[in-house]
Design a protein around this nucleic acid. Structure first.
Length: 282
DNA sequence: CTCCAGGGATGAT
DNA sequence: ATCATCCATGGA
């Protein structure tokens, strides 16, 4: 399998894969192997040169959003100390374009879980139900389609260590497989309408819906609020010990971070988790 | 509005 | 080796 190379300036592969948006990539040689939709891919980065195998260039460019005007997006962030520190720390981090179902299913499983555990669930589902592919003699697994999971069972899903989430995943898989929930058709919906539809699915609340909007539907303003980001926001933007309702927090985020709030959220999130940024329990 | 089940990894003792 | 902690959703 031959390696191809492209210029990928203002891109950080490692950060983009490890900031909590995708969970199935594994280290291999100097890079990573994983599935992009149903194909096995190898990717590695050396400076501004991105090398890859297994998929054509357009798939790589699209998946890693190399077409996003990242410098412009970062300039649109608010100018405050916390945001500026996060912007510096996360240089090159891009929001990955994930297939809708793969993203939805993974984030249903993410509820009440930490990144390390979501990884295990994602890999377990892929190994048990997904198509097996090989690249450089290494096996990688595509994420199983909704139809495959819909014909599974609560018991079988629970073997993938997802506990009570199995019930929600199964019910949502059935709605997607039956066409009752048409994830592709939802692309044309406005943000609020899309969020409403996603929240009607079992196991999907506002937080998961916003993750799916950001990571699968290119809604770059969607701002998922989890406990991590909530800590960051309270610490950086609100007086200590002042009581702020979830609603006020939501309103602040939507107004303050602007059209690329989802990018700002990822940067704040990744900086807080990995950057030793604001002091918090890790 | 508040309370709490739920599962399994991870960190603390 | 056991114990406490983490945490989104949904339902009481």
């Amino acid at each position: 399998m031959t390696l191809s190379h492209i210029d990928a300036s203002n891109f950080d592969l490692e950060k983009s894969l490890h900031c909590g948006q995708v969970f199935h990539w594994e280290k291999y040689d100097q890079g990573f192997v994983g599935a992009i939709a149903n194909r096995a891919a190898f990717v590695k980065q050396r400076g501004e040169r991105l090398s890859f195998a297994g998929v054509p260039e357009r798939i790589i460019t699209r998946y890693f959003s190399l077409d996003h005007p990242l410098a412009e997006i970062c300039r649109s962030f608010p100018n405050d100390p916390g945001m500026n520190a996060a912007r510096d720390f996360c240089r090159g981090l891009r929001i990955i374009r994930q297939p809708e179902w793969e993203c939805l299913a993974t984030f249903i499983c993410s509820s009440m879980k930490q990144v390390a555990h979501i990884r295990q669930i994602s890999i377990a589902l892929r190994k048990r139900f997904g198509a097996r592919k090989a690249i450089y003699g290494t096996l990688v697994y595509a994420f199983p389609g909704a139809a495959r999971l819909a014909e599974s069972s609560d018991e079988e899903l629970r073997k993938c260590a997802l506990g009570y989430r199995g019930k929600n995943l199964l019910a949502t898989a059935q709605r997607v497989a039956s066409g009752e929930a048409d994830l592709k058709a939802w692309r044309k919906l406005a943000d609020d309408e899309l969020r409403t539809r996603l929240c009607e699915l079992p196991g999907v609340g506002v937080k998961v819906a916003n993750c799916v909007m950001l990571f699968a539907y290119e809604r770059l303003a969607a701002f998922p609020i989890d406990v991590w980001i909530e800590r960051v926001l309270r610490q950086q933007y609100f007086p200590p010990r002042k009581k702020i309702t979830a609603r006020q927090l939501r309103e602040f985020c939507d107004n303050y971070f602007g059209d690329h709030g989802g990018y700002a959220q990822q940067y704040l999130f990744h900086h807080a988790r990995k950057g030793g940024g604001p002091k918090m329990a890790i």
